[in-house]
Design a protein around this nucleic acid. Structure first.
Length: 452
RNA sequence: GUGGUUGUAGCUCAGUUGGUUAGAGCGCUGGAUUGUGGUUCCAGAGGUCGCCGGUUCGAGACCGGUCUUCCACCCCA
């Protein structure tokens, strides 16, 4: 048979895993420094935990796991006869693959509420699955790196999380543009335009501004039944750049004013330290996820920087405040705020900009090459000694031809090779070399050299 | 989920309006120089032309279905 993998999934080869781990480790180190703790949740969740949390569209994208055993015996006969797939599903599938890390986290918080102390700061780096149609940079299986704090509504955390963005991307060497907005400000716009009931429609339209432009947003809103008078008002508000101007426009909207107040407070915390990246208020930032209730964030590559102006990539991170995420699981009044890093996209950007450090992995330092069987035995003993000194080393498995062994050294990207034949065994001076140099040294001298 | 697109050797790709044993470069294996890394030379292996079916005397090429890739929509990291 011909081997294959499911659509939208990928294999990761050593070089890719090493680079990906570099990103994960960088992110993780910053999370830990800011006092966040790791958790993991199962790959499968009960479908009852997942369904209904991501809207109608999201439910369609959930991977369902077929029950084990004779699932047909317990299937809903009526639904089966009627060919009603949706109704049938609940009787033949009780589990599904996790769609994101936020909902499982909310479930975790509720289940462990007696064991954790609030505010609870956690990070989580695990893959998630979506039955979406794949495209470039868009997969059915991909990693998310989430960092959240629940159990406090302090805007200090909003500031802290943006600082984390700032620090992580500074370490990775990517200049980014962090856009900040507040869901209440968006609501204020809807309220001020008299279309509070069509808030979601407006939000989804504004979210596409980058892609379809102001004209496109107008069309989309009008096409979905928002009056042209209201659309004009919204357009005008989208032009406003400062919080002061918006404040005037929001005189009739208490929610909008609250949003302005939250943004100001965020800045009071955040402005205490100069960021390495651009961090700006952007009223056009919407984010479709419907559980956000306060501040929202999105990170994009800063294309105004000369070296990065060619990069075409959507958002590489996002997040926000959700006031009532645990409510559906029966725990009220627990506010949370969190952000996520788009690892796969960050990987692609790093690749494009060539930002990986030369030695981002534990690369092979020495490859031993033996020229005959006696030398092979001798080399194996040398191998034990260098490994005991914590040097990554390997011995070619047989005293094959020099050319073949050298080719292997090249393929494995070994830093040095040590060649051992009868002369070396007699003198104890080993031929230690790489592409540019060649020296005869004792094993101890080599170990000393590489330990530095 | 809707519409479109792609699929030929391990990789990147040729393959004329349907016509004999489907090609190239790189890579791989072996050999030439019997102990020092990309060279050169010689030889060789490797393809159910994504899969299934149809049209035809004859299909890699045409038609249908299916899977996969990428793109737009939807939505999103």
């Amino acid at each position: 048979m011909k081997p294959s993998i499911p659509k939208g999934t990928r294999d990761f080869s050593p070089e890719q895993v090493v680079k990906r781990n570099y990103i994960f480790d960088t992110i993780k180190d910053v999370f830990v420094k800011y006092g966040y703790q790791p958790i993991e949740t199962p790959t499968m969740e009960n479908l009852s935990t997942l369904t209904g949390k991501y809207g109608e569209e999201g439910d369609k994208l959930l991977f369902k796991v077929l029950n084990n055993g004779d699932y047909l015996a317990k299937a809903d006969k009526e639904a089966l006869a009627a060919q009603d797939a949706q109704k049938l599903t609940s009787s033949i599938s009780k589990r599904g693959l996790r769609y994101d890390l936020t909902v499982p986290f909310a479930r975790y918080v509720v289940m462990h509420q007696n064991d954790i102390t609030f505010p609870f700061k956690r990070y989580q780096i695990q893959p998630v699955w979506r039955a979406d149609r794949p495209q470039k940079g868009r997969y059915q299986e991909f990693y998310q790196c989430d960092v959240d704090v629940v159990g406090s509504d302090s805007l200090m955390y909003e500031a802290e999380l943006v600082q984390i963005y700032d620090e992580v991307f500074a370490k990775l060497g990517i200049k980014v543009f962090v856009k900040v907005n507040n869901r209440k400000v968006l609501y204020g716009m809807a309220e001020a335009a008299g279309i509070a009931d069509q808030f979601m429609t407006m939000t989804i339209a504004i979210d596409k501004l980058d892609k379809i432009g102001l004209e496109g947003v107008r069309k989309e809103m009008e096409g979905r039944g928002i009056s042209s008078a209201a659309v004009t008002q919204i357009e005008n508000m989208l032009q406003l750049k400062s919080l002061d101007e918006l404040e005037k426009a929001f005189q009739q909207s208490p929610t909008g004013l609250k949003g302005i107040e939250e943004l100001r407070q965020f800045h009071q915390y955040f402005d205490t330290k100069a960021p390495s990246n651009r961090v700006e208020f952007d009223i056009t930032l919407a984010r479709g996820l419907n559980y956000y209730t306060g501040c929202i964030f999105e990170v994009a590559v800063d294309t105004s920087v000369e070296s990065q102006k060619e990069v075409v990539m959507g958002s590489i991170g996002g997040g926000g405040r959700y006031d009532d995420l645990t409510g559906v699981f029966g725990l009220k009044n627990v506010s949370g705020v969190g952000v996520s890093f788009g690892a796969a996209r960050i990987y692609d950007v790093m690749e494009e900009l060539n930002l990986y450090p030369e030695d981002s992995g534990n690369q092979l330092q020495i490859l031993f090459i033996a020229l005959d069987q006696a030398a092979h035995q001798y080399a194996f003993d040398c191998l034990n000694k260098v490994r005991a000194a914590n040097i990554n080393a390997e011995l070619y498995p047989s005293p094959a031809k020099m050319k073949k062994q050298m080719k292997y050294a090249t393929a494995r990207n070994a830093q040095y090779t040590i060649i051992i034949g009868s002369n070396e065994m007699e003198s104890g001076l080993l031929s230690f070399k790489n592409k540019d140099m060649r020296e005869s040294l004792t094993l101890d001298a080599i170990i000393e050299r590489l330990k530095l």
